[in-house]
Computed example of a mutant assay.
Amino acid sequence: MIGAIKTETITKGFVLAGLFNMTVLIFSRFFTNSVIPESDPVVMSNFGLLMIVVWGLAYISVAKNYHSVKWLIAVFAVEKFIYGFIWIKWMLNNNVLDVFAKDKMAGIFFAIYGVNDWIFFIFFLLVFIRLIRFGNN
């Protein structure tokens, strides 16, 4: 299964991962939405949101030559795992409806960002496994 994924599909996956990270700009209203950093001041500070954009640029930057940076793809998988884990922890300790009550865009962001991270964790992990098992093919 892993080996059957087409190179073009993987390239599109990296671009899609990057674009999804860029949606932080929309949900944060270009870092002016104070509800997101108030709801998670450690991970989702404006600096943290900016770093999410930087990670997105990194995904896009390797889209066409991902096969040359297999260990970086492993780093991407670890990064997405961490964000996914932190999201689950946040969801267990907070009420996303409280965020929705303050700001719909922030509520949507907190409701979905971890799902995105888990999906792309699996994607990056599969790409890394493919590169380990099959090389550049």
Rank of each mutant, 00 (worst) to 15 (best):
M1K: 10
I2S: 08
I2N: 10
G3N: 11
G3W: 04
I5S: 04
I5R: 12
I5N: 06
K6S: 07
K6V: 01
K6N: 04
T7N: 10
T7I: 07
E8G: 05
E8W: 06
E8M: 02
T9N: 05
T9I: 07
T11D: 00
K12I: 01
K12A: 02
K12T: 01
L16H: 00
A17C: 00
G18A: 00
G18Q: 01
G18P: 10
F20W: 05
F20Q: 01
N21R: 02
M22C: 04
T23K: 11
L25E: 02
F27K: 07
S28I: 05
R29P: 08
R29E: 03
F31A: 00
S34C: 06
I36W: 01
I36Y: 04
P37D: 12
S39T: 07
D40P: 01
D40R: 06
P41G: 10
V43I: 13
V43K: 11
M44P: 04
M44E: 08
G48F: 12
L49A: 08
L49N: 13
L50P: 08
I52Y: 04
I52P: 01
I52C: 08
V54T: 05
V54Y: 06
W55C: 09
G56Y: 05
G56K: 09
L57K: 01
L57P: 04
A58S: 01
A58D: 00
A58I: 01
Y59H: 05
V62R: 01
V62D: 00
A63D: 03
K64V: 00
Y66Q: 02
Y66R: 07
L72S: 09
I73R: 10
A74W: 10
V75Y: 13
V75D: 13
V75G: 15
F76N: 13
F76D: 07
A77F: 09
E79Y: 14
E79P: 14
K80F: 15
K80G: 12
K80P: 05
F81A: 15
Y83M: 14
G84N: 10
I86Q: 15
I86E: 15
I86N: 15
W87T: 08
W87L: 05
I88T: 14
I88E: 14
K89M: 14
K89V: 14
W90R: 08
M91C: 11
M91Y: 10
M91D: 13
N94F: 14
N94E: 14
N95R: 15
N95H: 15
V99G: 14
F100N: 15
F100S: 15
A101W: 06
A101K: 13
K102Y: 03
K102E: 09
D103K: 12
K104A: 13
K104D: 13
M105L: 14
M105P: 10
A106Q: 09
A106V: 09
G107N: 11
I108H: 12
I108W: 12
F109G: 09
F110C: 09
Y113G: 00
Y113D: 00
G114Y: 06
D117R: 05
W118K: 02
W118G: 01
W118I: 02
I119F: 11
I119T: 03
F120P: 00
F121G: 02
I122C: 08
I122F: 13
F123G: 07
F123W: 08
F123H: 06
F123M: 05
F123V: 02
F124T: 08
F124N: 09
L125T: 10
F128L: 02
F128V: 03
R130I: 02
R130Q: 07
L131C: 11
R133I: 08
F134Q: 04
G135E: 04
N136F: 04
N137A: 11
